[in-house]
Simulated scan of single mutants.
Amino acid sequence: MMKRHLLIDTGLLFLIPLGIIGFSVSSQTDSPADHVAGAQHNHLKQTTDTAYTPKGRTIDTSQIQSLDFRASRVYRVTYAKTTFRAPLEADYREQRLYRYVPGSKKNNRTYSWSRIKAHVGKRVYVDMKAKAYYRDDDGERESEDFYRIRVSKSTTAQKYWVNEDVFDD
């Protein structure tokens, strides 16, 4: 009886590898064209949602703009009020003046340092801090600090956003 079980086990152990080898050989003989033949092309139609248009009005499809789905590197910006004065560092020209925190708006305007008559050691008023969180090229999360500055003591003066590197440490 024991010999019979050993014989069955040995037979199964011999058949299993043969079955695997046979299956792999048969799957390699299928031509790639057999798999491609089953693929179908998707045809998408351009449609306009008319559920939210006022009655009696038609939609001019030439004015419809496609949505921009490109991923932004900046995914969050946090703001905090602060008040201090700081002198500009010697390498301030390597940075830029921005209208908004970089990455927070799609069309952000940059300005020249000559606009505020900047020079090394010029003291500027800082009234807000922003921390921009973004993903670098490797996908890792990073953050960078920006400060809102103005040249005049007046709170209605033109304000610009600058990188933290423009100030002396």
Rank of each mutant, 00 (worst) to 15 (best):
Q65G: 01
R73V: 15
T58W: 01
K159F: 08
S152P: 00
E144K: 02
L88D: 03
Y92V: 09
E142P: 02
R123A: 09
L67W: 05
H43V: 14
T50A: 13
S31W: 01
A33D: 14
K117L: 08
G38E: 10
E140D: 14
R150S: 07
M128A: 15
D165P: 01
W113S: 06
A80K: 12
M1H: 09
S27F: 13
D60W: 07
D9A: 13
T29N: 10
D9H: 01
Q28C: 11
I64C: 08
W113P: 02
T83E: 08
Y160W: 12
G38I: 07
S62M: 09
Y75D: 14
D137G: 12
S104P: 03
A132M: 10
Q28E: 11
Y92C: 03
F23T: 13
A130D: 05
T47H: 02
K106M: 04
S104T: 11
G103I: 14
S154V: 08
N163V: 05
T29Y: 06
R148V: 02
S66K: 08
H5L: 12
Y111P: 03
R123I: 10
I21G: 10
L44W: 06
M128G: 01
L18K: 05
D145T: 13
V124D: 00
D49I: 12
P32S: 15
T61F: 05
N163L: 10
D136P: 05
R70T: 14
T48K: 06
I21H: 04
Y133P: 00
G38K: 13
S112H: 04
